[in-house]
């Protein structure tokens, strides 16, 4: 089962995309607030990009893997209770609210 998890590099790429987007947004907001000091903005943007260390990425992979396995397992128990052996949309719908509250 250990082999079946997310690739930390993939997760890092996703995280960095989000962080880049947020940094760009922040920069835009700041530029509209203060029209001068464009040089300062250019350098501070570099300083602000967030990064993640290797263990944190592995842990995030585990968290996402747990999300997927929990979704499937909870839906599977509902499907089993209804006597079907294929997980359908209704089963997912039933477990979704609690799943989203738990994560």
């Amino acid at each position: 089962m250990e082999g079946n998890t997310f690739d930390p590099d993939l997760i890092r790429a996703i995280f960095q995309l989000v962080w880049k987007r947020r940094a760009a947004e922040r920069e835009k907001n700041e530029r509209t607030e203060t029209m001068e000091a464009e040089m300062g903005v250019g350098t501070s943007k570099k300083n602000r990009l967030t990064s993640a260390n290797a263990n944190a990425l592995k842990l995030s992979c585990e968290l996402l893997r747990l999300f997927v396995t929990e979704a499937i397992q909870r839906a599977a128990t509902i499907a089993e209770a209804e006597g079907s052996n294929k997980i359908e949309a209704t089963h997912l719908e039933r477990i979704l609210p609690q799943l989203l509250l738990d994560f």
Binding site: V68, T69, I72, A76, A79
Partner: peptide
């Protein structure tokens, strides 16, 4: 991941 989990529970998805 989901397929492996489904197989473990004996469920098709």
């Amino acid at each position: 991941i989901a397929e492996a989990e489904g197989k473990k529970n004996g469920m098709q998805i």
